[in-house]
């Protein structure tokens, strides 16, 4: 009888205790932050990425698997700036995890670490799905990644101080490699300065600002609204006067609209990986920008 009770208690106890293989359980809202966590945390973190490059981070549901993962996360890394407003708040209230609540060290937002672009002067939903804090797609400028890496590394140290030296050295190594890559990218991308393109969603603004690419227009008539035929007609008229070199889309944007416009304007569609995993070559953050530049240079030179 007593043994029987012991077995049950042990079973329940074993079920309650997390297998502590890694020091930090990281849940990244988007693949870029998952990749950055791996760069900075190495084998001291175990990373779960909530979304893929084929999913629109604005429109994710707080589905059961995400609630289950959020339950055990020590650190949740999201973009912020209301990008995940439709799902992260639900994960926070439903997962029963005090660590990842807003204001706790276990909840990290990337966007507040950098300069935001396109902060709306006026807020009105008639302008589409605008974000009060500014355009949230900050990771498309690698200089932002460098800043976010510094803050994220500090956050990991705060949550796991025993491994301070480890995180410091990884952050240093990453930062050095990133600076080298940045110099290389900026040199390679020089021909892209001033090149005109048509975007899909306003999710390449930081890339454009970094490289000096000029976005003539977006397929979406307003941020977050699907392309309409009338808007695409207007775009074609505008392109006749002010030609663009390519139509840029990310893997989660509808290819049909991009192809229609590109076909009519007789320019190519360039699908940029947008985030880690968005193309075969974008295996990590370095690959993301290597491949992004290669694809742009293929049409922009």
């Amino acid at each position: 009888m007593k043994n029987w009770l012991k077995v049950i208690l042990l079973g329940v106890g074993g079920f309650m205790v997390q297998p502590a293989l890694a020091a930090l359980n990281v849940m990244a809202c988007e693949p870029e932050w998952g990749a950055l966590s791996k760069e900075l945390g190495g084998d001291k973190v175990s990373v779960y990425v909530a979304t893929t490059a084929l999913q629109d981070p604005h429109h994710i549901e707080a589905r059961p698997s995400l609630i289950a993962r959020a339950r055990s996360a020590d650190l949740m890394i999201c973009t912020g700036a209301d990008l995940e407003v439709g799902w992260v708040p639900l994960l926070q209230t439903q997962a029963g995890n005090a660590k990842i609540q807003r204001g706790q060290p276990g909840y990290f937002e990337a966007a507040p670490q950098v300069l935001m672009l396109e902060i709306p002067e006026r807020l009105d939903r008639a302008m589409g799905d605008v974000h009060p804090q500014g355009n949230p797609h900050v990771h498309m400028d690698p200089r932002n990644i460098a800043k976010i890496a510094v803050a994220l590394s500090e956050r990991m140290i705060r949550l796991d101080p025993a491994e301070t030296e480890y995180y410091r050295s990884r952050a240093k190594s990453f930062s050095e490699r990133w600076q080298q890559a940045l110099t290389r990218w900026e040199k390679d991308a020089a021909p892209l300065r001033g090149v005109a393109v048509v975007g899909y969603h306003k999710n390449m603004s930081y890339l454009n600002a970094w490289l000096g690419i000029r976005e003539v227009g977006s397929l979406e008539p307003k941020p977050g609204l699907p392309p309409t035929t009338s808007h695409m007609g207007e775009l074609l008229v505008r392109l006749a006067k002010d030609p663009a070199r390519a139509v840029i889309r990310s893997p989660y944007n509808d290819p049909r609209a991009a192809e229609w416009l590109a076909g009519n304007a007789k320019i190519p569609v360039v699908t940029l990986p947008f985030t880690v995993g968005g193309s075969d070559k974008a295996k990590d953050l370095f690959g993301l920008f290597d491949d992004t530049l290669a694809r742009l240079l293929a049409v922009g030179k």
């Binding site: 079920f15 609630i67 289950a68 439903q94 997962a95 029963g96 995890n97």
Partner: peptide, 11 residues
């Protein structure tokens, strides 16, 4: 409510 610390949601 209780959410189990598992990858499958058990609530």
């Amino acid at each position: 409510r209780w959410v189990a610390p598992t990858d499958l949601l058990v609530e």
